[in-house]
């Protein structure tokens, strides 16, 4: 603790005691003063943190950027080509492009959940990063991993509640943005 911090704390204690021991307008004046000191304390804390981060970022371990990029590109690409393969398959069974695409998405979702259950998806994700998060299989993984993890807490408060940990935000903001897009399209 620096002398400056000690001095601030001493003054804070003093002002706080005066605030607690006074009434009405005087009390409000002391409260004002207390808030000033608290802001100064916060500012000191933030400044120290900023300096430390600047200093410690020099010794930071480098993110293996090129390796991460290659993995993300490769795995993401492969998952999308697999999806494309299913689209071709469903089209051959006579589905229209749009329906084939939707069916393919559902198959990928099921594959994602299955691999999560087998305990494989997190091993892929460890290397592939965004490559296995961004495709719809990653959406499926985030849902099924949360559900799986909280199985031991029961099917109501465990699986039932936690399954929406990531699905909830995705659905919420997907719906919210799509409504705005729909309305904007209607108005303009």
């Amino acid at each position: 603790m620096t002398d400056q911090e000690r001095e601030l704390l001493r003054r804070h204690q003093d002002v706080l005691a005066r605030e607690a021991g006074s009434r009405g307008r005087e009390r409000a004046r002391w409260a004002e003063k207390r808030k000033e000191i608290e802001q100064a304390q916060d500012a000191l804390l933030r400044e120290r943190g900023r300096l430390y981060l600047v200093r410690s970022s020099k010794t930071a371990a480098k993110v293996p950027l090129v390796k991460n990029m290659l993995w993300a590109f490769g795995v993401g690409g492969v998952i999308c080509s697999v999806g494309q393969g299913f689209v071709f398959l469903f089209q051959r069974f006579g589905l229209a492009l749009k329906d084939a695409s939707a069916a393919s998405t559902c198959v990928l979702i099921a594959i994602g959940a299955f691999l999560t259950g087998l305990g494989v998806y997190d091993d892929i994700g460890k290397r592939a990063g965004a490559g296995s998060i961004v495709p719809v299989t990653g959406f499926s993984n985030s849902i099924s991993s949360a559900a799986l993890e909280f199985k031991r807490e029961g099917f109501l408060y465990g699986v039932g509640a936690k399954i929406f940990t990531v699905a909830g935000p995705v659905i919420l903001y997907g719906v919210a943005v799509s409504i705005v897009v729909g309305l904007v399209d209607l108005l303009f």
């Binding site: 305990g119 849902i143 199985k151």
Partner: peptide, 20 residues
């Protein structure tokens, strides 16, 4: 369709598998 599929398969995964 996508949301339901993800919820259903996620639920099934939690029924049939254990976290490792």
């Amino acid at each position: 369709a996508g949301i339901s599929a993800a919820l259903l398969t996620g639920f099934c995964a939690s029924v049939f598998f254990k976290p490792k």
